[in-house]
Amino acid sequence: PQPGYLGREDVRNCSTNPPHLPVTAANTTIQLAALRQWMQAWNLTAYIVPDTDAHMSEYIGKHDERRAWISGFTGSAGTAVVTMGKAAVWTDSRYWTQADRQMDCNWELKKEVSISSIVTWILAEVPAGGHVGFDPFLLSVDSWENYNLEFQDSNRRLVSVPTNLVDLAWGSDRPPMPSQPIYALPKEFTGSTWQEKVSTVRSYMKNHAMAPTGLLLSALDETAWLFNLRSGDIPYNPFFYSYTLLTDSSIRLFVNKSRFSLETLQYLNTSCSSPMCVQLEDYSQVRDSVKAYASGNVTILIGLSYTTYGLYEVIPKEKLVTQEYSPVMLMKAVKNSREQALLKASHIRELPFFSPTSKMEAEGQELVTMIYSSLYLSAPSMVTGQSWGRWGLERQMENESFSSGPSFETISASGLNAALAHYSPTKDLHRKLSSDEMYLVDSGGQYWDGTTDITRTVHWGTPTAFQKVRKAKVDSLGSIQWSRSNLFSLSGRMVEAFARRALWEVGLNYGHGTGHGIGNFLCVHEWPVGFQSNNIAMAKGMFTSIEPGYYQDGEFGIRLEDVALVVEAKTKHPGAYLTFEVVSFVPYDRNLIDVSLLSPEQLQYLNQYYQTIREKVGPELQRRQLLEEFAWLEQHTQPLSA
């Protein structure tokens, strides 16, 4: 079916006179004028505004939302470029409609994400001899190298401007840096002590072919993981702004010291200077301190993907040891048995958040209103999702002491809104639930033992045959085993085709990745585990989400997401193959399963999964006296028959 765009009022239309702007669009004229003044002062003809912070975070704090402030577009991914006469945002298909709802006609929307497409546009807009500015603390070394390569021989100069021009334009309206306490995780929620982790990293450095004397950690989850420390600097992410410089004889932690309690300072051994003592230095001193360390007889290991050009440029090239990801990033990706147990335990608690949606399915539309009103407190009427933070509220109210709120803004969408992979309702833009439509909810929690992320799609009426996608999901999980032989070192990229196969067979696809790693009370998207070309090979002990979907523009959206652990497969000849063990325990909507599409093996897999859900989650629901949820579980995990 063709998307029904004609006459839509929820998105901008810049080709009419006057242009049509929805109420959700931001007026960015003043912001752009302010930025252009600063560009003029710095003699720049174009300025690049990336979507990240100085740690290459995927999700960022309020004071780092520069791209959102200048353009109005709030999606998590997308680069803006401003010239003296034009402005454009590049983003991927998850956010195209959102960008058309949020941006005014000052902005062009570019439906691509590669650096080469950005540079092609800049070269067309910036005359020869022009200067293109960027903040060196907002580009990774990798990204800078790509931009630099693209600009070579172009007669335009890429200029590193250490003062951020958007910050200057933003002025006093820019939110301040967070300052809440940084705390140590209790022992029972960690895989090993920080001292054990530091020793392991030092052994890695010692045995490295280049034997670096120092390791610089820039990603926020690297430092949080290494020291078993957490805070809440970024919404939904328990991190704190920091860097670590770990050497063979010292540990330097760059952070705002006033955020530690006396107890945490003792935990870190900050009152000594031996190799197992943590020396605290101010967060803002990192560049100078790395520069000073690099002046000695040293070599420094950095991960190119998460270190900014701003730090890279102060280390002499002959003293650099580089690899794509730091050893901490690689160690964190493989969970030890204790971390595996913790992450699994966190997923067992998820079912109650998903069962109400299925109550609606069973009990009809009128009751939906009632259930929503009673369950989600502030629900004024029958609208989709968590507008005003209802799902989030529910998670915050969890009385388990180790619950720490949601792990991302809940995606809750019905009908055509669900065709936007990352739609979240707002006061201005929401939709009444209907039994004739599909409803998608993607929600996750931050618990002290693990981060969760599950998506389910339901239909409360009669879905069409076109809307049933069960087969693709089963294929991506149950039937797949892959060689773990070093000869092939099979990456997720090669396994991913199985997840898309059922869609590809009929000429369909989905425009986002198939999965991502997930942390122990860390990132909900914990890279570099996943199914993409820049992800590392899957290995035993890694966790990944598996989330195929399908999005029919202007009509509906489907996504089914589970988290799975990579384990050894039980094959006739054991030891050489890996497979997935699903650790998300929420049944799928039976309404969306066409049993006739499933092979006997797929059916057997699904019924085995349902049996596991009963065994794992049933006792937990009974322990917590969640009897309604328990009855729902029993009903929705009845074995399916061919």
Partner: peptide, 24 residues
């Protein structure tokens, strides 16, 4: 939560590396 797909540039790099490692 759905992840972004990587850009073509990095895919080329990965494929080139894969081919190099297979042929070495």
């Amino acid at each position: 939560m759905a992840p972004i797909t990587t850009s073509l540039t990095s895919m080329w790099v990965a494929f080139t590396l894969a081919i190099l490692s297979w042929s070495s």
